[in-house]
Design a protein around this nucleic acid. Structure first.
Lengths: 213, 213
DNA sequence: CCCACAATACCCACTAGAGGGTATTTTTCG
DNA sequence: CGAAAAATACCCTCTAGTGGGTATTGTGGG
């Protein structure tokens, strides 16, 4: 049996240490490093072989979803197992659509972590119960995006949602970006439709979860 | 030198494992257990001696701030070192006012963790740089709560802020709680004043950070 | 070359929220 | 018991946000 080289992509180094300690019980699973940001993940991949990445969704700077997309594009053979406390369908679907082999919820036990990694390394998908339940339940407020009908946010929309979540009014955002208030409103409408939320509150939660604020 | 018995209060067991691994390098510091909820912390304290608790602010069910208050009331001799990724002044001040001996930011290195624990065990306060900076900068939108003028939220206010953050409208909240819309508005006003925020967005972030939603 | 999409901007109408009060009753706590 | 705090509810005004359109321009991909 060959050794699986694992990179832990998580803001906290101490978490990688914990995983490393847990995986010491699985001789073929080897934590070879820790990357705190999406950028660090890509740099690491460029200069060292990696078999599997345990990837947090809420990475700082470039988050896990964006990093997932880049990793999949540049290194299609590297497996990625999403690893996060978030279980909302938005994040589970996003990661899977961007190429993740599975979604492991962060409060998993040592046994589940090992099982999940082994499952994924056998080319089988792995979803923690909470993540699976989330995908079965579907979206909350609309029927627009069943299953995989995934719509990413544009750069401009990300700028807007960040400012919205930081308590800026439409007027302030318009002035800051040198655009009309109406344009800001249009972006907000698109955001709310895409993210299946009813109000500002949903936008704020999304931005917070993805660690954009 | 006597042994320091440390309880790690954090939703993730794997984090406690990581800390335990790090503290293996400090012979007198000993992780004796892990508690995932505030309730579990109190149960543990009731039946086993503990010298220091590393406490996450965002514990599920009963969060770190509330647990801090209870621990301090029931076991005033147990030291608590707050341990969280959150650096906003609201959380730092809340924990310190409720009796924490320090505030350690979660991306701290192994060396800083050990230093922080040793500092606190010598009866000296410890604040990570980011936490100290936050307290020096002060509050964002008003001057109402300088320094320690800390105002806790009432039970009713917590119910309201949760529902608000879950995208419920004032009208829906009123119906759910069998009270008038005006009352809901009054609670919202109080919340916004207490938490120094300008809009719904600030309330949502607060509720999310404290793991109430 | 065309199509799709992103970003821009405007229309209209309506609702919800923010911000300022005051006031009553009940509960809690010293 | 008496004071303070909490929960309740109303007044008024104004702004901000939601929800439905339509439309133009530029850009990138097939």
């Amino acid at each position: 049996m060959s050794i699986t080289r694992i990179l832990v992509a998580d803001p906290l180094e101490v978490l990688a240490v914990g995983l490393s300690s847990w995986l010491a019980d699985a001789p073929e699973l080897n934590v070879i490093g820790h990357a705190a940001t999406g950028q660090a993940v890509l740099e690491r991949l460029a200069k060292e072989p990696v078999d599997l990445i345990l990837m947090e969704v809420s990475l700082p700077e470039q988050d896990g979803i964006d990093t997932m997309r880049e990793v999949h594009r540049r290194h299609p053979k590297v497996k990625v197992l999403a690893y996060s406390s978030l279980t909302d369908i938005e994040y589970v679907n996003s990661m899977l659509i961007e190429g993740a082999s599975g979604y492991l919820v962060k409060d998993a036990s040592q046994a589940e972590v090992i099982t999940a990694i082994r499952t994924v390394m056998c080319d089988k998908p792995y979803l923690s119960p909470a993540a699976r339940e989330s995908t079965l339940r579907g979206y909350d407020y609309t029927e627009k995006r069943m299953d995989g009908e995934y719509i990413g946010l544009t750069e401009r929309e990300r700028e807007i949602i960040r400012l919205v979540a930081l308590e800026r009014t439409n007027d302030e955002i318009a002035k800051a970006l040198f655009i009309s208030v109406d344009t800001v409103k249009t972006h907000r409408k698109h955001l709310m439709t895409k993210l299946n939320v009813r109000s500002l509150a949903g936008l704020v939660r999304y931005a917070r979860d993805r660690n954009w604020i």
